[in-house]
Computed example of a mutant assay.
Amino acid sequence: MPTIAVIAPGAMGSAIGARLVGHGARVLTVLEGRGAASRARAAAAGMVDSGLDDLVATDILLSIVPPADAEALARRLAPALAAAPRKPVYVDANAVSPGTIARLAAIVAETGAPFLDGAILGLPPKPGSKGPRVYVSGDDTAPVMVLRDLGLDLRVCPGGVGAASSLKMSYAGLNKGLTALAAIMILAAEHAGAGAALQDELAENEPVLLARLAKALPDMAPKAYRWAPEMGEIADFLGPDAAGRQVFSGYAEHYGRLAAETGEPEIAALIRFAAAAAER
């Protein structure tokens, strides 16, 4: 069985690590500088704490970090990758734009390691579930097909480096952008005293949307700090579309505000709205 590095053991990384370990892979990670929660997740997943030299001696290296940390991680690993006599396939599976992916690919290319563009669509894997979908694109995806045998729903996205990240930006823009729009309008209604009326109207005419929001808003609350930079990456992805960039730059600001301490009252209002929606 292959040895795989998963960086880092956050909610997604540790769940993917657990899936790989459960199918017989040896999974390494790095816990230096990580907190108690990360260490506990890694231990529960069966991931092995390792140094950089061990990480770059694996067969596949999966980068699964917050979007804002993707480039810093690649630069941190670059010297060890360059010195490694046997290079892993570096898969960047972060929610970043094709422009960011191009910079990451250039960093990794200088080390001599093969690079693939990756995208994770869906929630962290749970026992008994198939997902999430993990897409890869690039010149040679064959070396990572083994991940299918290790429990991942791995799919090839047609195209070169940038194709998978374009899919991720488009899907996340629709999915998380809709949640941002809903949160903005729900908060506006609540501030104006029309929150209950809005919920009644949604229940009568948009029941599917209301049911979605009952789940999506609580799911968003602890992730807003990660979604903020992701919205910035989507704005970058939109390139010459000035109106689109403005919309997603605004969503980035919105999620950043919700993630801050000053956003706690707004998060509480959204959670109350979602709880009431779930009871209907």
Rank of each mutant, 00 (worst) to 15 (best):
A74S: 14
R75I: 08
R76A: 13
L77A: 12
L77W: 02
A80E: 05
L81Q: 00
L81T: 03
A83L: 09
P85Q: 07
P85F: 10
K87Q: 13
K87P: 03
P88Y: 05
V89S: 01
V89E: 00
V91A: 02
D92Q: 09
D92W: 03
N94W: 01
N94E: 09
I101V: 08
A102I: 05
R103Y: 08
A105H: 03
I107L: 08
V108Y: 00
A109S: 12
T111K: 01
P114L: 07
D117M: 03
A119W: 00
A119L: 06
I120C: 03
L121Y: 04
L121R: 03
G122E: 04
L123C: 13
P125I: 06
P125C: 12
K126A: 15
P127T: 12
K130L: 12
G131F: 01
V134H: 02
G138F: 00
G138K: 00
D140E: 11
D140V: 10
T141Y: 03
T141N: 07
P143I: 06
V144R: 01
M145P: 05
M145Y: 10
M145G: 13
D149R: 14
D149S: 15
D149F: 07
G151D: 03
L152T: 02
D153A: 14
D153I: 04
R155Y: 06
V156G: 06
V156L: 11
V156F: 08
V156K: 08
C157W: 02
G159I: 09
G159R: 11
G162S: 09
A164Y: 02
A164D: 05
A164L: 06
A164N: 04
S165V: 05
S166K: 09
L167G: 02
S170V: 15
Y171L: 07
A172W: 01
A172P: 06
A172S: 14
A172Y: 02
G173Y: 04
N175G: 11
K176A: 06
K176S: 07
G177H: 10
L178A: 15
L178I: 11
T179P: 02
A180F: 09
A180S: 15
L181G: 09
A182T: 04
A182P: 02
A183F: 06
I184M: 15
I184C: 15
M185G: 14
I186W: 01
